[in-house]
Design a protein around this nucleic acid. Structure first.
Lengths: 186, 186
DNA sequence: GCATAATGCAAGCAGTCACTTGCATTACGG
DNA sequence: CCGTAATGCAAGTGACTGCTTGCATTATGC
């Protein structure tokens, strides 16, 4: 019975259970058991399930690889970094972005933490705007450009994970970027 | 007390509640109340919640707009039809495809019906293969091409619905298709 | 018109959920 | 070494869940 619980492990378990079962589908009992913490302790420390999630999301996803994206000046370099950051985040936590976007309207209790985490999207929008102004990207609503770039990655990874299609190739980032920039017509 | 219940309305309610709260999050009580059917009737007719969902998904999503996609011979025409079919399905039911893909591994009980519905994806794969063989699309794993085309649409619509970004423009299908075919580089 | 079968209704059952409480136990700070 | 505060433990609460049951009611097929 340690004086302080292993919060790092706890938060990791929270995110994992969230990804595996969704907010409504995962239980504080399971989280407590897996993390090796007593369930009562969770409520004494964080007040509620929502409170626990707020802290976990904030602490665990604040410095996700997506947060490291910056503008180098070279479009291809930055697109590559952005794509790999998204894939790294996916490898670490699964489709956190989609889960958050999907469950945000339904659970206003975690809205604050999730929207803080999703503030990373603003950085990506800045990236798009920069290269639009530089004349290297088609000028349109930056979220159209951003979803055009992230959407295929997220969709493919989710599809691959669902197990619907038996054998799917690994996601080819280079091919995706060239398709994004120059199209898929032959 | 009608002799037979309004099954069309019932199935519609099932899909709506599914989209709104997820499989684990929606209750048979709510479904029964909203559909104006007694809850006991649901279990007498369909045996279980999973049985109800199986029938509802099968009946309601079998002839979704996505099922109507066919190969005309003209790439632009077919891409336009595919995109609008996806958007129509989204307008009707929300992100059924993503929900299904996401919840399939978690609820094996509804796997059968959902995978039947998702069989529509096979038709889209055929479409991609056809135009690859015709030399009009880059040759790669068809699911890479398909997610590259559907991913941005789905992602943008989900993003718009989440309410994260205050004002988002309507999705421009034509712009998306030209971006998909010829890229977004200027 | 009458038997039949599907439905409505109300109550309830067992399990699970988030959350609480009282008390013993532990580890750290002074 | 001792007080304090965080933790573990066990039990429990009320609400909700999927699902069942017994009985009255209704509409349809013959």
């Amino acid at each position: 019975m340690p004086r302080t619980i292993d919060e790092a492990k706890l938060f990791e378990v929270v995110i994992n259970e969230w990804m595996a079962h969704g907010y409504g589908g995962c239980t504080t009992r399971d989280i407590a058991n897996i993390a090796g913490v007593n369930e009562a302790t969770l409520f004494r420390r964080y007040g509620s399930k929502a409170g626990l999630f707020t802290r976990a999301i904030d602490h665990q996803l604040a410095d996700t690889p997506l947060a490291l994206v910056c503008i180098s000046g070279d479009l291809s370099t930055d697109l590559l970094a952005l794509a790999e950051a998204y894939m790294d985040t996916y490898r670490l936590y699964g489709d956190v972005v989609f889960r958050a976007v999907q469950e945000l309207p339904r659970y206003p209790e975690v809205r604050e933490a999730a929207s803080h985490f999703l503030g990373n999207i603003q950085k990506m929008v800045q990236l798009v705007l920069y290269y639009q102004q530089k004349g290297l990207l088609r000028v349109e609503h930056p979220l159209l450009t951003l979803t055009a770039f992230i959407g295929p990655i997220a969709t493919f990874l989710m599809f691959a994970r669902s197990g619907l299609s038996p054998e799917m190739p690994p996601f080819d980032v280079g091919s995706h970027i060239s398709g994004f920039l120059h199209g898929r017509a032959e």
